[in-house]
Amino acid sequence: MSWTITAEHIDGLARGAAVLGTGGGGDPYIGALLARQALADTDVTVVGLDEVPDDALVLFVAMMGAPTVMVEKLPSLDEVVEPVRALGVHLGRPVTHIACAEVGGVNSTIPIAAAAALGLPLIDADGMGRAFPELQMVLPTLHGVTASPLAFSDEKGNTGVLQTVDNSWTERIARVACVEMGCSVMISGFSMSGVQARESLVADSLSRCIEIGEAIARARDSKTDPVAAAVALLHGRELIDGKVVDVQRATTTGFARGRARIDGAGDTSITLQFQNEHLVAEQDGQVLVTTPDLIMVLDGESGEPVTTEALRYGQRVRVAAAPADERWHSAAALAMVGPGYFGYDMRAHRFDGTISTGGTETESGVLSEGNEPR
């Protein structure tokens, strides 16, 4: 059933999306500012996947680049809508619906701004159910939806449309352009029909973001535990409550890469590895959780999500984990987003403590040959 998103929804949505963004997706405050600006004079109609016509033309709208850069390189509404307009011209037919590539940080709110500015409906769904750092890392890739033609634009007025042989090549070429254009660009692509959208997207993502974000705010207002409220909604568990004692971070090849260590009570310690998003959580040398499952850092008292670029020495934080959409645990999905793809020589440790082995699981805890590191 369709509903209307207004400026009053934005705080909760941005907060919940930053939780699901697993540390990536950019500063939710920036995305919230863009969405509020676009919603100042109009509302946006949000439709469920079952309401999208079979012959619809659905496009993703997103920011591509390093979240650390976007803190200082703010996009404008013109920059957000230009790729959609360019792609509509290239495809030779009107765009009918906007969708989120990911429900993470700014990439949950930028599509709201695009939909408002263009007068188009927004689909209550996304391509991941979380955030991932590379363009091809969406469920539509597993369903044969091509990223290209992909349109991109920057704050200088540069606009391009890219046609490639597959989604991995789209990522590789677009990433080079992104770096040359300042490590942050707006993109639009993954054109799909309503049939393809229903088959490949994660339903009710925006509603879930609002539910999580508002639950954190309610718990804080009622003096109950906001982190516990979020973890319960995510069917997750808390890994550690502690202090950030070390952060190593650098912006390289268009990504924010690094690691952070959180020390808890006694001698407990967790190390997080990230590339825009948190990818691996280890405790005392033992792997607890890996991508594709969700690893989230929240402020220890307020429950506000903490992005990887906002991690600072001395912060009191709580780290939680939760299961990803089950489709991310197929063999093909793990080859695309599992720890081996990012260069970690390990199997994908599932949130529930078992080890994913390309579609099968084992309780043994024995690591054998898996995806080769890049």
Score class of each variant (00 low, 15 high):
Ile5Gln: 06
Ile10Gly: 00
Gly21Cys: 08
Leu33Ile: 01
Arg36Ser: 04
Ala40Phe: 08
Asp41Gly: 13
Val44Gln: 10
Val52His: 07
Leu57Phe: 00
Val58Ser: 12
Met63Leu: 13
Gly65Asp: 13
Pro67Tyr: 10
Ser76Gly: 14
Ser76Asp: 11
Val81Tyr: 01
Ala86Met: 06
Ala86Cys: 00
Ile98Val: 12
Ala99Ile: 14
Val103Phe: 05
Ala113Asn: 10
Ala113Gly: 03
Ala117Gly: 05
Gly119Met: 07
Leu122Cys: 07
Gly129Asp: 03
Arg130Thr: 07
Phe132Arg: 02
Thr141Pro: 05
Ser148Tyr: 04
Ser148Thr: 15
Pro149Thr: 03
Ala151Val: 11
Phe152Trp: 12
Ser153Thr: 13
Asp166Leu: 00
Val179Gln: 13
Ile187Thr: 14
Ser193Val: 04
Ser193Ile: 08
Ala197Val: 07
Ile212Met: 03
Glu214Thr: 13
Ala215Tyr: 00
Ala230Pro: 07
Leu233Tyr: 04
Glu238Cys: 07
Arg257Glu: 07
Arg257Asp: 10
Arg259Pro: 06
Ala265Glu: 14
Ala265Ile: 08
Asp267Leu: 04
Glu277Ile: 02
Val280Trp: 02
Val297Arg: 06
Glu304Met: 08
Ala321Trp: 09
Ala322Leu: 10
Leu334Thr: 08
Leu334Gly: 03
Ala335Thr: 06
Tyr341Pro: 03
Met346Arg: 15
Thr354Ser: 15
Thr357His: 12
Thr362Trp: 01
Gly365Pro: 09
Gly365Tyr: 10
Ser368Gly: 12
Glu369Phe: 15
